[in-house]
């Protein structure tokens, strides 16, 4: 844990920006004017692309060059994706992947 005041400031920044983004469309498009097509287009494709970026972000500190060569991450992530393809249930996949990863890093790869 870092110091309390910086933590509080970080939370303030994140909540203020989150709220500002949620309110922005209601402020900008107060009247019924039509949305620009490029905004509509980005609205349909950006969420998917950002999720791809965030998935990569989660692996940013994992190195394939040093032991255990990202093995626990790759095994657990495959289980997450595999169980999701099988059951299409978010909670089962997150639960199974996280528990497996914890077991792997605490025992096999500790």
């Amino acid at each position: 844990m870092i110091n309390t005041s910086h933590s509080l400031l970080l939370i303030a920044v994140m909540s203020a920006i989150t709220a500002a983004i949620r309110f922005m469309p209601f402020v900008i498009f107060r009247s019924d004017e039509k949305l620009p097509k490029s905004v509509k287009y980005l609205g349909s494709v950006l969420p998917g692309a950002v999720m791809g970026m965030l998935a990569v972000y989660c692996f940013k500190s994992v190195s394939v060059f040093t032991p255990p060569h990202a093995a626990p991450e790759l095994i657990a992530a495959s289980v997450v994706a595999g169980t999701y393809l099988w059951r299409r249930n978010t909670l089962i996949s997150i639960g199974a992947g996280t528990v497996l990863y914890m077991v792997l890093v605490q025992t096999v790869f500790s």
């Binding site: 626990p72 991450e73 999701y84 996949s93 992947g97």
Partner: peptide
């Protein structure tokens, strides 16, 4: 021993990504 619990975040985004790849 909560070592590794941070993988829940990775798992969340892997699920969302998989779901997006299916659509």
């Amino acid at each position: 021993n909560t070592t590794g619990v941070e993988f829940s975040m990775t798992a969340l985004f892997v699920v969302i990504l998989t779901d997006n790849l299916l659509k």
